[in-house]
Design a protein around this nucleic acid. Structure first.
Lengths: 148, 148
DNA sequence: AACACAAATGCAACATAATTGCAATTAAAA
DNA sequence: TTTTAATTGCAATTATGTTGCATTTGTGTT
């Protein structure tokens, strides 16, 4: 369980570092900045988002950061029908060995924001003759901020 | 309701043509070939798949075929976390005006095939403060052919 | 059946996105 | 502090997607 500031959603440096360590990733500036950005904003971002945000880092480094985060279970990819993959922080402690694959996401048609939702309400799906291993739900609509 | 051959899944030329007409699309070789390919194989394909299959057509034409099919409600885009959009034939008669947005798909981890599943079992999702307009479910696992 | 017009196609050029190899740098273990 | 292997940034390359335009083609009309 992460400890975030109630007001600004910031996370302690040491906790951030531990997340990387726990997933067998070296602690570098780029990785710390990117991870902090995701956690602080509590939403999903695409590569393009990162490129715009972190101009101090090379595009290739950002690509590789997303890749290593995904490989080592820090992030998961969120399916999209736009061809633009977004990434979200894995809520449960995922690792390469033990990865929670069921995810539920909400994409706002208005502002475009993608959020990770609680995974406890994903239905168990069974289909005759198929082996279903993973259920991914993508909801679209309007988020509270855009409704208001 | 389409009439497909029980053995080979082939569809009559006139029926194929009617699908295009009904969606206000001109009948061209490329569109007929592509639509027939999707229906005959009863699965979803990416642009890349089409490019490999239909070398007789220009890349741009295939891009535009997928685009017009999607615009006019013949195909729908299937979300994916690979960054590779796949397209599926709309089961109900979708049109630009009346489009059925709830879809359920299965992707085989083994052979990579993407199939459209019946939409009647998609749950109604309600989230406090959100307006949910569309529910997309993507299942992953192993398909009957790969299990056997 | 021929005509006219709008739409679709193919090609070339262009724009954007993603990947690879490699030298320099840096994190972390010895 | 030293050593080692991973990470980074840069340049070059490849892949993917888009646009403009001349030519061809489908379809409604004469």
């Amino acid at each position: 369980m992460l400890h975030l500031c109630y007001y600004c959603n910031m996370i302690k440096y040491s906790e951030l570092k531990n997340i990387l360590k726990q997933h067998k990733l070296r602690v570098t500036d780029c990785r710390m900045d990117v991870l902090e950005y995701f956690i602080k904003n509590n939403q999903a971002f695409s590569f393009k988002n990162l490129e715009d945000e972190f101009t101090q880092y090379d595009r290739v480094t950002l690509y590789r950061t997303l890749h290593s985060f995904t490989e080592n279970g820090v992030f998961h990819k969120i399916p999209s029908d736009t061809g633009m993959i977004t990434y979200g922080v894995c809520s449960t402690t995922c690792s390469p060995q033990n990865h929670q694959h069921n995810h539920m996401h909400f994409q706002c048609n208005c502002c475009g924001k993608v959020e990770c939702l609680a995974e406890d309400h994903i239905p168990v799906v069974k289909i005759p003759l198929y082996e279903v291993m993973e259920v991914n739900m993508i909801l679209k609509g309007v988020c509270p901020q855009c409704i208001a």
